[in-house]
Design a protein around this nucleic acid. Structure first.
Length: 299
DNA sequence: GCGTCCAGGTCTACC
DNA sequence: GGTAGACCTGGACGC
């Protein structure tokens, strides 16, 4: 089954797929030499699907739903998931208007950069974000792969969905430590999942929250295992760009770009991007990753 | 092949 | 409010 979806004129699938590392973590996957994003999904209705997204025309996406790898009849649900992951319902015209004021950032509007790929659920984004903390990218990939393979639903050979909060909540801390390789993050993942299942935590409401960002930031950092770095990046995937989310890679990259490799404090970096206002987190990220598209993606 | 060391973000205890 | 140490793993390195 093939679905079509019209997209805003400023949308660029290539830029969104490679906006950060999510496209190389399951249940997302990409293909070498093709601008194509695939995903295995367990839909809110319970159906499982596998689909691939391409952009044959500037204002049109094609979604190829593989009928052999899951039920293909969930048309509206699939479209809703794709729109959410690719940030198609969000308006970036204000961001591009601001970016045009800065010669250093005029390229963002010209290339359609800015939409950061996200998962259909905040839960998946949050779990993955915790799995990026205090470890190498290689270990993040191992943890997320294990989560999908051992707790997700199998769709086809080597294709699994991301586990639901319920699926994570029913395993033990020892399982998460040893089988998923989450190590000391295991109690964080377990508490997060169990709080969702018990109804103590409604992460999904963060995407539609009208709370001021600092208030939401406090709520996000209130979840065990989510500190300043993870919270800032989760907020970016919600559409709030007030915080930078500086990690060791960002510090190094900033230092290389602007300080001849000298050590820099986070305060210096924050001051550097402060005048970009509510969009500073997005300017910060696009600035540090601009070279990816000219050289090679690091994930 | 084995042992040691280091990097990485967050939490907790302590000052 | 700031700081030190623990947490855990993979990878780099030396032997």
């Amino acid at each position: 089954m093939k679905l079509s979806l019209s997209v805003p004129a400023d949308f660029n699938l290539h830029r969104t797929i490679y906006s950060h590392g999510w496209s190389s973590l399951p249940p997302f996957s990409t293909e070498k030499n093709r601008i194509l994003l695939s995903r295995a999904d367990e839909l809110p209705s319970g159906g499982v699907v596998f689909y691939s997204i391409s952009q044959p025309k500037k204002k049109l996406l094609t979604i190829d739903v593989d009928a052999k790898k899951g039920a293909a009849e969930h048309r509206s649900e699939i479209l809703r998931q794709v729109k959410s992951c690719l940030r198609l319902d969000e308006d970036y015209s204000e961001f591009y208007r601001v970016s045009k004021k800065y010669p250093h950032f005029r390229w963002t509007a010209k290339t359609g950069a800015g939409r950061l790929l996200r998962a259909p659920s905040v839960f998946e984004d949050a779990v993955k974000m915790i799995c990026t903390t205090n470890c190498s990218w290689a270990l993040t990939k191992i943890m997320v792969n294990n989560l999908c393979r051992k707790l997700g639903k199998k769709i086809a050979a080597d294709i699994y969905t991301f586990p639901s909060p319920k699926a994570v909540a029913r395993v033990t801390e020892a399982f998460l430590r040893k089988e998923i390789k989450a190590g000391y993050r295991a109690p964080y993942l377990l508490e997060l999942s169990r709080r969702i299942v018990n109804g103590d935590l409604d992460m999904e409401s963060w995407r539609i929250s009208t709370k001021p960002t600092p208030e939401l930031y406090d709520e996000v950092t209130g979840v065990k295992g989510i500190g300043p770095y993870a919270a800032a990046n989760i907020l970016k995937l919600i559409g709030r760009y007030d915080y930078l989310g500086i990690d060791s890679w960002c510090r190094k990259q900033f230092s290389t770009m602007y300080k001849d490799g000298r050590k820099v404090s986070d305060r210096t970096i924050e001051k550097f991007y402060n005048h970009y206002g509510a969009w500073r987190g997005l300017f910060f990220w696009l600035d540090l990753t601009k070279h990816w598209y000219e050289k090679e993606y690091p994930f």
